[in-house]
Simulated assay, not measured.
Amino acid sequence: MQTANELAHNKAAAAVGLTTAVRILDKWQASGEQGEAILRVSHSTYARARRGDLAEIKLDSDQLTRISYLLNIHAALRMLFENPENLYGFVSMANHNPYFNGRAPLDVISSGDFAALYETFKRVDSLRGAQW
């Protein structure tokens, strides 16, 4: 059982993670609907994250994992690209590698399917030489 202090720390960390993920999605030029589907959060939660108004937030393990994958996709892209146009534009570009088949990574993960988010992370991460 978590102490009150641990629970408060976890809620604060979840709020920071969600706010950061929403900022990244905004830089990727994802629509609110796309961001909500990717992170599996409600419209009101997404809007509150955009405003940085997440004092009381409860996220389940699926949502936290989605945030983690999104942050890790961004981290991998930061290792690959120095140019902000590529860093933030990569996910919107048509990708002709086998998994994407001409679709942009953002379009793939916007389905809200957890497996699509995982597969996109795996493929972006492999570009930087990650071993699976």
Results as ranks from 00 to 15, higher is better:
residue 2 Q to N: 14
residue 4 A to Y: 07
residue 6 E to H: 04
residue 8 A to R: 15
residue 10 N to C: 11
residue 11 K to A: 08
residue 11 K to L: 09
residue 12 A to C: 06
residue 13 A to D: 15
residue 14 A to C: 11
residue 15 A to V: 07
residue 18 L to Y: 03
residue 18 L to E: 05
residue 19 T to Q: 15
residue 21 A to F: 07
residue 24 I to K: 01
residue 24 I to W: 02
residue 24 I to E: 02
residue 25 L to N: 03
residue 26 D to G: 09
residue 29 Q to V: 03
residue 35 G to P: 00
residue 37 A to S: 08
residue 42 S to W: 13
residue 43 H to F: 12
residue 44 S to M: 09
residue 46 Y to R: 04
residue 51 R to Y: 03
residue 53 D to P: 11
residue 55 A to W: 15
residue 57 I to V: 13
residue 57 I to R: 09
residue 59 L to M: 14
residue 60 D to P: 05
residue 62 D to H: 08
residue 63 Q to H: 09
residue 65 T to N: 13
residue 66 R to L: 07
residue 66 R to D: 04
residue 71 L to Q: 05
residue 72 N to T: 07
residue 77 L to Q: 07
residue 78 R to V: 07
residue 78 R to E: 10
residue 78 R to L: 06
residue 80 L to S: 10
residue 80 L to A: 08
residue 80 L to T: 11
residue 81 F to K: 11
residue 82 E to F: 04
residue 86 N to I: 06
residue 88 Y to I: 10
residue 91 V to P: 01
residue 93 M to R: 08
residue 93 M to C: 13
residue 94 A to E: 14
residue 95 N to F: 01
residue 97 N to T: 11
residue 98 P to N: 12
residue 98 P to L: 09
residue 102 G to V: 01
residue 103 R to Y: 14
residue 104 A to L: 08
residue 104 A to T: 03
residue 105 P to T: 06
residue 105 P to Q: 05
residue 106 L to C: 02
residue 107 D to W: 01
residue 109 I to Y: 04
residue 109 I to N: 00
residue 110 S to M: 01
residue 112 G to V: 01
residue 112 G to H: 06
residue 112 G to Q: 08
residue 114 F to R: 08
residue 115 A to E: 15
residue 116 A to Y: 00
residue 122 K to V: 11
residue 124 V to A: 01
residue 127 L to E: 10
residue 131 Q to I: 01
residue 132 W to D: 12
residue 132 W to L: 02
